[in-house]
Design a protein around this nucleic acid. Structure first.
Lengths: 237, 237
DNA sequence: CCCGGTACTTGAACATGTTCAAGTGATGTG
DNA sequence: CACATCACTTGAACATGTTCAAGTACCGGG
């Protein structure tokens, strides 16, 4: 955890001041862009088309968004929020770990399902490590933390008893698994992405069992080994 | 396994005829492109620069390569071959599963290491599901099979005794793991990509142990469950 | 009310991946 | 050897993401 007191400059940009009219224009451009993305797909939607449809000059879009890819961030934020809402619904009802996890994962797929066809198109933007859209990027940090928080709630709100060390790591591990599911989903061409659903239904019981077993004394050394691996890989040197 | 007798048309293109001069030009363009990619990076290398440097018209490059991205395929093939050679060196010396796997993975990183800085840049091309560069694409099928073959040799040539069902699946699973390592490596910004090395060194013993345990009678149901999951997810309906 | 600054807006210009109609030259055939 | 065919080559033209110098609108202070 890097403290607030570190000498390095705070990497968060100071959020340019904006007047009411500006915010309105910004919203208009974003709404128009997302609508056109949905209607025609990402690649087929040109910046000129967005500008024309929104009734502004093309340069204006670039005043509010650094690039075409940056428009996608709005999509992300929206779906993230929707996932959170859907997840809370599930978490209020279920108390055991397995159904909680299963419900949250399915909810995530539900939320994204309408966008599967063109999610793949701009998925590549997210894949580039240097892209602000990467789930590991600094810009995505708030969204990432919010997502991990959901999985923390999955764990902490459950009746499952588990090793305290593991409990600390599990939310982030589950989030990583969720990223894997998303990756699978993006590549999943089966009708309605059934294979992804099957993956979730099959993997959750396995994870649940593994987590329960983590409390067994016999498996303590193995668990330690796994946790040590995570720690050593996370170390950034 | 789809048989050779399926009614669907063979999706492999008929390989356009090519004369000696054509092949020469093709090679020239590819060599020039890869050199410039190495020297300046992928994005910074324009098609015009490649053409100029190779002494041909820009349209000529498009006669041999469908797009700029397709030039990367040449890079892939080359590194794939280099990995195979390096892996065989290891496999000739080591007989136990763990060192064989460890050696092959490190060899793979060794081969790719010189290109880490710009591998990330065009990694995004590979990430797009519809791209021919995707490791799961039809066009990549030969390269993918070759890669899986390396891992089959890792398993089959080892002294490890393991469940026959698992033995059948393991090479593809290890390849999948290798893709995961590559994914990690692409994102790994630590000096010399040390973290990726640590990931390999830490994960291999775990995999080795897990594989050995697969023969235990007690774990048979769990193994069945895992294999069933794989089967159900692989099913393409 | 005027003025200076700053948020906002514009559209032409630019860079670069890609296409294509038109040419050039080698090769095999009668 | 003449000719037809087809591989090969060309470079201008096009499409689209991005930049930028210039202009406009609004706000706050004197």
């Amino acid at each position: 955890m890097t403290g607030v007191t570190t000498a390095a400059a705070d990497p968060v940009e100071p959020e340019k001041p904006r007047r009411a009219r500006g915010e309105q224009t910004r919203q208009l451009i974003l709404e128009t862009a997302l609508r056109l993305f949905r209607e025609r797909g990402y690649t087929e939607t040109t910046m000129r088309a967005i500008a024309k449809e929104a009734g502004v000059a093309v340069g204006n879009a670039y005043y509010y968004f650094d690039s075409k890819e940056h428009l996608i961030q709005g999509f992300y934020d929206r779906n993230q929020a929707a996932h959170r809402v859907a997840a809370e619904q599930v978490l209020a009802d279920e108390k055991e770990l397995a159904p909680r996890l299963r419900g949250v994962l399915h909810a995530g797929i539900d939320v994204n399902a309408p966008y599967h066809s063109f999610a793949a198109t701009f998925f590549k933007s997210a894949a580039e490590p240097s892209s602000p859209l990467s789930p590991f990027s600094r810009e995505s940090s708030p969204a990432r933390e919010a997502a991990i928080a959901i999985f923390r709630e999955v764990v902490d709100g459950s009746t499952a008893k588990l090793d305290p060390e593991l409990r600390k790591e599990l939310p982030e591990l589950l989030w990583l698994g969720w990223m894997g599911v998303i990756l699978f989903w993006v590549y999943d061409k089966s009708p309605g992405q059934r294979r992804t659903r099957r993956l979730i239904d099959g993997a959750v019981p396995l994870i649940d069992r593994l987590v329960s077993l983590s409390r067994l004394r016999v498996l303590r050394p193995a668990l330690r080994q796994v946790l040590a691996l995570i720690e050593s890989v996370r170390r950034d040197d």
